[in-house]
Design a binder for these strands. Structure first.
Lengths: 163, 163
DNA sequence: CTTTATGAGTTTAGTTCTTCAACTCAGGTC
DNA sequence: GACCTGAGTTGAAGAACTAAACTCATAAAG
C-alpha cells in the first residue's frame, strides 16, 4: 500500500537545525541571551575551541541570528562584538523548552541550576514568577499535552510516496 | 572587577543537548512523533546513514528517550521497533518551538510545510486550530516576549568567577 | 532442501568536523 | 623598541559522519 506523507526533508525543523543544530550553536545563543557579547566571553564561558567559535559566530552572523558590531573601549583599539538580532532572540522559547526538558528528565540532584523568570528588561511588570513554555492553540486551549497535537500539511508541503 | 555568574556548563540546556543535540537526534524524535517506529522507516524518511541511525537509536534508548520493543508481523520473524517514552514525547514543545522559528525566519516561499494542530489522539476535543508555543509565567502572564524573561540561579546552581 | 528475499543491522573506507595548542595580527603601554 | 592584550588563524591529531557493501536470521518459493 502506497501512502503519501509530508516530505520530512522539506521542513522548518530541518531548516532550523541546519542553522542552529550544529554543536555549540544553541549554547552560543544561550550565552548571548545571558549577556555575552565578546569573542573572549563566549570562549571562556563555554570552553569552546577558538577556531570553532570563530566559524560558529560567522555562521550565525551569516544566518542572521547574530550581528557583528564594532565597539571601542577607552584607550583601546576598535574591536568587534556579537549581539543577537531579533531572529536570534526569537530562539528564547526553544531554549526554555530545552531547559525545561533537561530539568525534568536529566535533573541535577540539587535541583535546577537556572530558573527563567518573568522579569522584563525595563522592569515595568516585574512579577518575577518562573516561566514555562506551553502549547496553546488559536482557539485558546492552553497547556496542551504532547499527545493532543498532530502535524498536518501546510501550504508549502511537498509529499513523498512510501510503502 | 570580579563577578559571579551561573556556571554555563552545569546547565540543563547543556545536558539536554548532550542527549538530543547530536546531528539527527531531534529529527529522529520528530519522525517518531509523526509515527515512525521501525529502523527502515527512520532510514528512508531521513536518509540518515544506517550505522549512524543504529548508534543514534541506541543512544536515545540508553538516554530513556526511546524504547526498543519487539514486534512480529504475521508470517515474519520477530523484529524490534522503536517508540518514544514519555520523556521522548516531552520533546514536542522543543520541536514545535524550532518549527515555529524555522517557519518565521527560514520560510519556504510557499509557506510552512507543516502546521501543528490541536487534534488529540482520542479525538475528544478536536478543535483542529493551529498550535503555537508560548512563554507563560506562574502568575498567569501569557505570551511573554523573549525580552521579558531572564535567567536566575536555581537551587542547583554552581558559580564561576569571571573578570 | 537449496535458493532467494527481506528487514535490521554491522563493517569498512573515505571524508568532514572538533579539539587543542601554537602562532599571527593590530593596536596600546612601558 | 619590547612587551601585552583581545581576537582571531593555522595545523596536526582524533572523533564523527557518509555511503556502500556485507552479514545474519528467518520465511517463502521452487
Amino acid at each position: 500500500m502506497e501512502t503519501r506523507r509530508i516530505d520530512p526533508v522539506n521542513c522548518s525543523v530541518a531548516r532550523a537545525l541546519s542553522v542552529v543544530g550544529e554543536r555549540w550553536s544553541l549554547l552560543i545563543v544561550r550565552e548571548a541571551l545571558d549577556g555575552a557579547r565578546r569573542f573572549g566571553e563566549f570562549h571562556s564561558r563555554l570552553g569552546i575551541a577558538r577556531n570553532l567559535l570563530a566559524t560558529r559566530l560567522e555562521t550565525l552572523v551569516t544566518a542572521g541570528v547574530m550581528r557583528r558590531v564594532p565597539y571601542q573601549e577607552p584607550g583601546d583599539r576598535q574591536r568587534f562584538a556579537y549581539e543577537l538580532t531579533e531572529q536570534g532572540r526569537a530562539l528564547r522559547p526553544t531554549l526554555v523548552a530545552l531547559l525545561e526538558w533537561g530539568d525534568t528528565y536529566l535533573a541535577d540532584p540539587q535541583g535546577p541550576s537556572v530558573i527563567v523568570r518573568h522579569r522584563p528588561v525595563d522592569d515595568a511588570i516585574s512579577c518575577d514568577e518562573p516561566v514555562k513554555v506551553i502549547l496553546e492553540c488559536a482557539a485558546g486551549h492552553s497547556r496542551l499535552a504532547p499527545e493532543d497535537v498532530c502535524r498536518t500539511p501546510g501550504p508549502g508541503a511537498r509529499f513523498v510516496e512510501s510503502s
